[in-house]
Amino acid sequence: MIAFDYHAPESLQEAVRLLDQFAGTARVVAGGTDLMVTCRLRGLGPQHVISLRRVENLDVVRRDEATGRVRIGAFATLRQIERSPLLRERCAGLVEAAHKVGSIPVRNLATIGGNLCNASPSAETAPPLLAAAATVTLTGPGGQRAIPLEQFFLGPGKTALQPNEVLTEVSLLADGAGAASMYERQCIRRFKDIALVGVGARLALDGAGRCQAVGLALGAVAPTPLPVPAAADLLLGQQLSDARIAEVAAAARAAAKPITDIRASAEYRSAMVEVLTIRVLRALREALRN
């Protein structure tokens, strides 16, 4: 176990200042469910951790009436997310992904910000967020900047976050009015496990049942969570026929760059991208019919 020092500043500005001061030897700690495990199993860890528990309103979930997007404070726990009435109604894909992480006693600690900042290729919340055109807000000494989530992930464990920045908010497109989202994954153990492959999708149909907006993203099949716009775009302006869905799934499979590791072979992961994409798109078609 790594012994680090702990700081709980009163404000976001103070937190950023501390991060800046410790110049790369400090990390934010949110729920600690990744950080503590890394310290324990790998004996790796920062010299200082900065907790934002004293700072209020960093876990607020709300709908931005102006844009229609949903905004989630980075320190919202995954349990909060899966239980939020707003998110259950407006962000079904994200809620499903949050629900699949770990277990209730883990989700009561784990935050959405931590899930993203940890930048695991299999991070559960990433595919549905990418599919819903999410952006992340990063707060640093110079103020805030917002970037699309797909520019946030740089590699396993690597993000666009500067050492002196805090991820403060995530915003994404909402379901409703002809739009719906969904997330599915394949594991070894059927329910409780890390994803071998995850597929998040969001579809918006026009009045005639043609796809107006399509988001599709994959988890655990590339060094980062992977949006597959080329596959998604095949649906634009199209009806959701079985044949078209199969085409999209094949394209998603082609875009995936899985590896073989102790959990699964690249071959199986590729095949599951196709299987899950078909499953998710068909289920969305079903959901949007009703």
């Binding site: 199993l41 070894i188 153990r189 059927r190 329910f191 409780k192 496990d193 890390i194 102790i262 959990r263």
Partner: peptide, 16 residues
């Protein structure tokens, strides 16, 4: 040993 933990050593949970 590549999987010396209950994350990658998978025992049945109440759900399975």
């Amino acid at each position: 040993l590549m999987n010396p933990n209950f994350l990658d050593y998978r025992m049945p949970t109440a759900l399975e």
